[in-house]
Nucleic acid binder design. Structure first.
Length: 415
DNA sequence: TCTGGGGTCCTAGGACCC
DNA sequence: TCTGGGGTCCTAGGACCC
């Protein structure tokens, strides 16, 4: 386990047994800000903030020099500039970040086929099978760090452990530019003294809640009664927190998660009271959602309208439709009807959003092969649907249904 | 100090069915 | 003729994560 070095971060002592630490968590350091510095080398070593300079914007990323002033991601820009008036503010360039993200993800893919992306700048890697080719987990981690630095000019930190949660924790503790290996038998000793906020899923509200019940460290959570945790965070949360506090995290590294919803939202520069502007924005977003659905060959069955009013209260209203859709016109029809039915056209609106949920594979939904409640339809129904669409006799059952169960469209594989 | 935009997961209540 | 229990679906809101 880690000892602290001169800067307070944890480092891996030489000779640690890394044989059980086969899950790596790789996290780019100050990713967006670091990419910007590649394009502005003269700013290296200065407090740099990435984000828009507008009134309601927030900090997207900050260099470590800016973080010394208490400037972190998601901080309102107005506060950030008050805390660090000399900060240099750069506009974000998401295409650049996507480009560098692909480069580092490719490096990961070349080390192991079992890579789980988490957003744009993080990934879990299962490197148990990489041993014979690349060596022990620590060797693999060092290789990745060297390659990322050499091929992109960016710096990352790596945590290695026997579970995802501890690996992610370890990468965070080792930042910046660090590597921390946590052998399975040292997990509890690392975990229990740490504050509860380090537990995955404990944010500001839950932290307050647990502290109010006298729980301050992960060890406190580990020793807490189930009844107390149940009251504090509900059934699912109680089990999860208790397990995590004992280093138990059975989630495997899985390569690809299916998208469950797609949406867009926009915060206006100033609150809007003109319903015509709201409708225009709803139409634009409906189309954006529809384009993404079509590109992914998905259709949505539930349409959600989101509004945030001037006082920051936020509501969502949803409607499930009979025919799943990928059409902007249809999505707009639904959200605008919901909007009109609300009867709050006079209220100042800060944010509008449109989302499609209950996504299904477009091809199967179109033929009606799959039904959420019925499951896969039988052959007769399938033939009826196919005949209606392609003409009688045009489609043979064997071709329509695919070759075997595992080749069925992906919705059938959900569990 | 005043809160982005992309998401996921969980809870809880009511409708409805058996 | 007064009411059980399980299961699923739908909706709304909230917490959390990157």
């Amino acid at each position: 386990m880690g000892k602290q070095d001169g800067t307070g971060r944890h480092v891996t002592p030489v000779g640690v047994d890394d044989s059980t630490a086969t899950i790596l968590h790789v996290d780019m350091d100050a990713f967006f800000a670091s990419v910007e510095l590649l394009d502005h080398p003269e700013l290296v070593g200065k407090p740099v903030i990435v984000g828009h300079r507008s009134a309601r914007s927030i900090v997207t990323a900050a260099t470590y020099e800016a973080r010394k002033f208490g400037v972190n991601s998601a901080l309102p820009m107005s506060i950030a500039l008050r805390r660090c008036p000399d900060a240099i503010v750069l506009e974000p360039h998401f295409e650049r970040y996507t480009h560098f993200s692909s480069m580092v993800m490719t490096i990961f893919d070349e080390v192991t086929p079992i890579v789980e992306r988490l957003g744009i700048d993080e990934a879990f890697l299962d490197v148990a099978g990489a041993r014979t080719v690349f060596g022990s987990p620590m060797r693999v981690a060092e290789l990745i760090r060297a390659r990322v630095r050499a091929e992109t000019g960016l710096v990352c930190s790596v945590g290695a452990a026997s579970t995802k949660f501890v690996a992610k924790l370890a990468s965070g503790l080792s930042k910046p530019d660090g590597l921390l290996v946590v052998p399975a038998d040292q997990t509890i000793a690392l975990l229990h003294p740490l504050p509860i906020a380090k537990l995955w899923g404990v944010g500001g509200k839950t932290e307050e809640n647990l502290r109010g019940r006298g729980l301050h460290t992960i060890g406190d959570v580990a020793r807490a009664s189930r009844e107390m945790l149940l009251k504090a965070v509900g059934e699912a949360g109680a089990d999860r927190l208790h397990d995590l506090a004992w280093g138990i995290d059975p989630r495997p590294v899985h390569t690809r998660a299916e998208e469950k919803s797609v949406g867009h939202e926009l915060t206006f520069e100033t609150n809007i009271t003109d319903p015509a502007i709201i409708r225009t924005e709803l139409l634009r977003m409906s189309n954006m959602v529809a384009v993404r659905l079509r590109n992914a060959q998905l259709v949505g069955r539930t349409v959600v309208l989101k509004l945030r009013f001037g006082d920051f209260t936020t509501i969502t209203r949803s409607r499930t439709i009979a025919e799943p859709t990928d059409l902007g016109r249809k999505i707009y029809e639904e959200v605008s009807e919901i909007y009109e039915a609300l009867g709050r056209q006079d209220a100042p609106i800060r944010l509008v959003g449109v989302r499609a949920e209950q996504l299904q594979d477009a091809a199967t939904a179109q033929l009606g092969l799959w039904d959420e409640s019925e499951g896969w339809r039988d052959a007769e129904d399938v033939m009826d649907a196919a005949s209606a669409r392609f003409g009688r006799g045009a489609v043979k059952p064997a071709r329509l249904l695919g070759h075997s169960a595992h080749e069925r469209p992906r919705l059938g594989q959900r569990d």
